[in-house]
Each structure stands twice: as C-alpha cells, then as structure tokens.
Design a protein around this nucleic acid. Sequence first.
DNA 1: GACTAACGTTTTTTT
DNA 2: AACGTTAGTC
Length: 667
Amino acid sequence: MANDFAFESLNHAQREAVANLDGPVMILAGAGTGKTRTVTCRIAHMLERKIPPSEILAVTFTNKAASEMRERISGMVSKHAAEQMTVCTFHSLCVRLLRGGIDKLGYKKNFSITAYSDQVGIMKQLLVRKGGTDEKVKAETVLTEISRAKNKGIDVQDLSDDFFAQLAVAYQNELRAQNAVDFDDLLVLAEQVLREHSDVRDHFRKLYTRVTVDEFQDTNSLQMRLLQQLVGPPYHVCVVGDDDQSIYGWRGAEVANILEFERFFPKPKIIRLEENYRSTQAVLHTANSLIKHNIGRREKILRATRTGGENVRIVAMPGDDEEADFIADEILGEKSAVGREWEDFAVLFRTNGQSRKLELALRDRKIPYRMIGAQSFYDRREIRDVLAYAALLVYPQNDVPLLRILNAPNRGIGQATAILATDYSREKNRSVWDALCDPFFTTTLGAKSASAIENFVALISSAKNRIDLSKDHPATVLSELLTEMDYLPWIQRGCKSDSERQQRGEAIHSLEESLRQHIDRGKKLQSFLDDSALASEREDDDLEKKKGATLITLHASKGLEFPIVYLVGLEEGFLPHSRSVTEGTKDEERRLLYVGITRAQESLTLTYCTTRVKWGQKTGCQPSSFICELDDKHLTHTSFDEIQNTEMSDDDLSNFFASMNNIFAEE
DNA sequence: GACTAACGTTTTTTT
DNA sequence: AACGTTAGTC
C-alpha cells in the first residue's frame, strides 16, 4: 500500500508523530524537517485506522496552505476519502459554522462578510460623523485596535481609549444593521455560538473527532479559544508548528499557545522534528547559533542530513546601490557558470521599500524576476468594484457595496447626493437603496440628480431581475452590466501605461471567469462573494507560474526554500527594525532573521551597507547586532571591495591565459 | 463635481 | 523619492 511506502521513508521522530493518533499531540517541526509530509502521513494513517474521513478536520491559516495540504493528502489517499475530509482556514470553517447557526445570535443566516476595504470605508464615514472636530485619527488605526481587542477577547466597548471605544461600538452597530460581519467577527461569533450553545458544540465535536492545526505558532488567543470549544474530550487534537518561526506577533499571534500548550490541553505528547532535509550544515549551524540567543523557547537543534556546504558569507557593502549591483552581477555570473535556473535565486529583505533598487539592478541585466507579496488581487480597486456590483445583484439593500459604486463610474451621483441619501435612509431606518427607490426622497433633489438615480436604480433592478426571474447566468449579466455602463474604459482612464490598462482588463475578466466557473459548479452567487471576501490569493496563482529570480520579504518567505539565498540589509534599524527595538520585540526580529537563513538550501549570503539612501536622504548605517551573535565556524566575512579585487585578479588571470594562447597560436 | 497643488508619511500582512 | 490623501480652486 502506498501509505506503507511513505511510512518506511519517515525518520524516527516523524514515525512517532504519525503513529500517535490519540489525545493531544504537539509536533514541534523545525524549519525544513518534513512537516507537511509528516502531517499528511498522519492523516493518511487515520484512514488506515478506520477513522471516517468526514470526521477529519485540518485547519490552516491561509487559503494557499489549505489547498496545498488538500493536494498533498489527495496524493496519498483515495479520491473519495480526500473529498470527505475538511481542510480549510479558521475563517472558512467559521463561515460554515455560522451559516448554520448564526441565527442563534440574532443575525440573519444570509449575513455578508465585510472586506477590509469596506471596513475602512465604514470607519472613515464614522470618523467624519463622530469626529466632529479635527481628530487626527486614521480609520486603519482604529480598525487595528478593534481587531486586536477582538482577537484578545476584549469587548470592543471596553477599549482603553474612550473615543476608540465609541467608534468601535458605532462600527459594530453599523455592521449589525447591515447584517454583516468582519473577519474577526467570524471567529468571535463562532466561538460564542459554540460556547453558549451546547447543542451546536456537541454537534461539531461529533462531526469532527480529529482536528489538526497547522502553523500553530501563528494562532492568536481567540483561535485558541475557538479550538478549545471545537475539541472536547478525549482531545484528539494535533497542533503543528515552530515557535522559532513565530513572526506574526504584531498581528496578534501568541507564541504562548505553543510555549504553554499543556495549559490548554492535558498531558500532550510532544514530538520534535529536528532532522533537517533542506539546508547544508553550514547554513544550519549559523541558524542554530543565532536562535540560541532567544530566551523562552521550546529548544530545538536542527541537525543537518546534508553535510558540509560552502561557508555562509557576510559581505560589507559601501552603499545600497553596490548591494543591488553586486547581487545582480552574482546571479548573472552564477547562472551561466554553474548552470542554475533563475528560479534557484531568491533575494530576501525586511521592508518592501528595499526591493526597488534590486528590481532596477535585475532589470538592467535583463534578469527575469518575480516580486512576491505586493498588492493583493482582491484589494485592487477594480476587483472590489466589480465584487460590489455582484453583491448588489444579490442584495441591493446592502449599503456598503452600494455606496462604493454609486458613482463609479461617474453617473452624476456625487458625494453630496450620497450623503443626502444616507441621511434620509438613516432617518427612515431603511437602506440607502430603499431611499434611492423612494419618490419622496428623489423629489427633494434636483432634476439632474433625480434622473441619474432613476437610471441607476433601473440599471441594477433590471440586471437583478435577469438573474432572479429570467435565470440568466450571473456572470453574463454582470459582464453585460459592466459593458453597458462603460466601466472598463472608466477604470482604465487613469492608467499611466498600456500594461496597467491591460492588467485591469484582465483582472476583471479573470474575476468574471471564476464567477462563471463557480456558478457552473452549481454554487450560489452568495458563496462566491464569501469565498472572495476570504480569499487573498495573489494574481490567481500565476505567481507560481511566473518565472524568474524571487524578490520577497522575510515575512512572505516563510515556508519557501531556495538553493541560493541573498539576505540584504542586515543593518541595525532595519533588522532588527528600529520600531521593534522601541516596542521590545527584538526576539521576533531574531526569529525573522532565523526564518530567512533557514530558507537557504545550499548557498547563503548576508549583506549590510555602511550607507543607505533612506527617504531620499543618504544615511550612515551600523551592521546589525545579530551579526555578532552568529557563530564564526562556518562564516566568511568579506566586503564588496575585496570581492571586486578578487574578480579583478581572476580577470587578469584569464587575460594572461588569453595572451598566452595567442602566443602559442602565433607559433 | 473634477482637477491640481501642497502636504504628510514611509515594517512586516492574512483573513 | 515616491506615494496617497486632502484641501482649495475652477
């Protein structure tokens, strides 16, 4: 059997993880220790032990991780079994749960999920209304505070800042009035339903008897409480993670969930995966020597299965221009000398701002590259707009999407009119859409605005009717609606380049296509909106397909690996970031560097600059204090000048041979 | 209601 | 330096 074969190929610790199916289990999986393989084998083993696949739940943090795990499992078990398992994110699990039971909390079951940009929209409105005077508060800041509170289990009305608490309450009321929930509410409400309603809780505990949580170091305390509700005695729960790779503390992740796991589930079996299959001895030794400096961790020593390897280089650079040029030149040289693919190279940096010079240097040399982690597909303006139209076709009474596209494209319903409509709707306790349909409201407006509104209402109504009554395909209706109002030319008018224009067109088209597929698979328009709100997939996974060297932030690099890694900007103030020093989270910065180092399979180069152009100003830099923490055993310290000189003498040498050859040829 | 000019800001990012 | 936001003007 295929599973047996897989079991044979596992090491001792991995086998132990796979064999122990009962009771709480914590797998501490160091970087590159075959975590995913172990977890998928463990789940396959559950099937061998005749556990019904429908009772198996695996929870991940991102959609990408979920689909990857689903794929890996599918490769090991029968198609039928794979389909019956639940592999999803915390948030989509909660959506499922709430679509069934949110009515117990007084919401309607057709609640909608508020996307981030819409959260910002709501908060901005509230700031205008509540702010009164010129409070210099950003909507994003308030939302971050609200989110932090929810994830810590604090009631938002108890926020320490009075003004924030007031805004938070108004924000929740606004969502409630729209029968909408935000991302955090999904977890808050799901946990609440499970906690307060034992029938629901028992139902889910019987439904999922085996729960696995991936990337456990990224879970926050709300997710922990949700997990505790979800898993009852005898606690067949398995969490997998690595506290040394916990780099999302600023987003609420609680390393304590790993460090104090025993507090949450009784007598867990703790298994350490420390055999690393990814990196050379040199890389691992360097990584181990760094992470040793953190206190309060589940100690792990990564052991190399690949011995030797070239030393890790630390290169001092005069400035960030040289840094970028040096790396680009090396990539170019290595590619032809050793016969590498562009995909073998990755350049890692702390902040997105550091990528620009690197991009330019690569572009200069015609080196193809892919930037990972830039703008999210679903946060693009045109995508949010089109999704707003889709949302209106389901339920025009939803104010958030309505206000979003009321004048996009421009149709003569400006801000002034929008405010009048909002005020009127609030007064009458109806939706903005109802106000627009109300002749008592429209007659108070000028003739021009009134007719603009009339046209708009007719446009949306007729499109909605085509779907509801004529049963036309929603994707077709949406597409024709956009064409009818010249949306594409409008959104393209502000584009600076042809490629941008093209991108926007393609983005809309690809959204229409995925809607079409979704409907053709027999699913509803509403569930498409759910998925879209919960998705953040970059450019539809064509990043995977894109070829070239990888430019990526340290955060986004977690979980990836590359043969040759350059880690730039190891300077005090950048790594550790200056803000982390003031906030006292230097440990997390150390973990961030640790994550970066352990991405390298064969070759690792760390660079720092003596000067750097920061905000258009040339500033001096100190090498990162982390550099002194690295053990010297497998390190080579060098500098830009030194390398340039060595290359020079290499050139001289080849010139010498060339002239010798000429002499011989002449003879 | 659209366009332009001054202004302020600039860690990491998922759902 | 470069970007988005906002205030002010037509």
